[in-house]
């Protein structure tokens, strides 16, 4: 228990240092979303800032970073399946009454997106090729 208190103490200290050089502020995403609203993301986790976002940051970044969340897209069902898998095999706890809120948030911001059977090549950075031939 004593060890635990020391740990909490040092976390608080580390947190204040982190506060100083990296304030938890929102960064504006350059891409306007479909509703022409500006999406704000959390500068520490990269998660979209919206209702219940702290809940996701609190419950879902204890084991892995939020990068694993922000790079995925799934339907509400798909997110629920991932949570069930983590609960069965990876030690994720029962999310209780938070679960529907978490699922709402995830399926709203990281929902399905259409890609088709083969997408066009995008984000190409053009450069002049100086080939020796």
């Amino acid at each position: 228990m004593k060890r635990l208190m020391v740990l909490i103490g040092s976390i608080v200290i580390m947190f204040s240092c982190q506060q100083a050089d990296k304030p938890a502020q929102a960064v504006e995403d350059m891409e306007p979303d479909e509703n022409a609203e500006r999406i704000q993301t959390d500068s520490i986790s990269g998660l979209v800032i919206d209702e219940n976002f702290e809940l996701i940051r609190g419950q879902c970044t204890a084991c892995h970073s939020a990068m694993l969340i922000t790079q995925n897209n799934a339907s509400r069902d798909g997110w629920e399946q991932m949570i069930r898998w983590m609960q069965k095999d990876q030690g994720l706890w029962d999310l209780g009454e938070n679960e529907p809120k978490i699922l709402d948030y995830l399926s709203k911001h990281y929902g399905l997106k259409k890609k088709g059977r083969r997408a066009p090549l995008t984000d190409v950075e053009w450069y002049e090729l100086k080939d020796e031939l």
Binding site: L4, L7, R57, G58, T61, A62, W93
Partner: peptide, 22 residues
């Protein structure tokens, strides 16, 4: 201890205040 702390922190929402590296 660390694991119990992780759970407790997550449940109280404390983890959102703590750098994930810790």
């Amino acid at each position: 201890n660390r694991r119990r702390f992780v759970q407790a922190a997550a449940l109280t929402g404390l983890s959102s205040l703590v750098p994930s590296a810790v």
